[in-house]
């Protein structure tokens, strides 16, 4: 059974923030509220990263998702014409998202829930990984020839290309 200590309590707070925020994103009738709920949800996610002893991921989550992406979303929403009082509940793509959501749930059940809590499950006491990685480990892993240097460089190149592309599109024809 779950032991009720401080970290469990904190986990529940962040879980509620995360799920409640996500619910708010889909049910709120005001796009700005939706975008702000998204931030609440992402913040909950950042808190969960802290609980998992991954502070780097938490800071990056706040920096990239809240500080950059969510603000861009809000900015885009502010420039749209009708952002409050949205009456339509479904748009034409509702069934695609429904299928995606069902598939995701199935993957989570098969991949995470059954191996741990299923009939032959390992129960939640099992430690999934013995490695406790520090920021240094992460940094070394990204530039180590035997580890992730190639994906890291490919991602950097892709982002640079995207940035150059954005500048070319945004620029006036002179």
């Amino acid at each position: 059974m779950l032991e009720l200590n401080v970290s469990t309590l904190v986990f529940f707070i962040f879980a509620v923030l995360s799920i409640g925020g996500a619910l708010g994103v889909v049910i709120s009738r005001n796009l700005i509220h939706g975008a702000l709920f998204l931030i609440v949800s992402l913040f909950g996610g950042a808190g969960l990263f802290v609980l998992l002893a991954a502070p780097f991921m938490a800071a990056v989550q706040v920096l990239v998702y809240i500080g950059a992406i969510a603000i861009l979303i809000i900015f885009a929403v502010m420039l749209t014409r009708s952002m409050t009082n949205i009456r339509e509940i479904f748009n034409r793509q509702w069934w695609i998202s429904a299928v995606a959501a069902v598939i995701l749930l199935a993957v989570l059940v098969v991949g995470v829930v059954l191996p741990i809590w299923g009939p032959n499950g390992t129960q939640s006491e099992m430690v999934l990984s013995e490695t406790t990685a520090t920021v240094q480990d992460l940094g070394v892993a990204l530039v180590d020839g035997n580890q992730y240097v190639l994906p890291f460089e490919v991602a950097s190149l892709l982002l640079t290309a995207a940035m150059v592309g954005a500048i070319v599109i945004a620029r006036d024809n002179e």
Binding site: F56, L63, F75, T134
Partner: peptide, 25 residues
Amino acid sequence: DLDIGVLYFVAISSIGTLAIMMAGW
């Protein structure tokens, strides 16, 4: 004394932008 002190500073100060956006809108 966070391992990621500098990154934490950058992350937190990006929230300030959000507050001003919220106020303005």
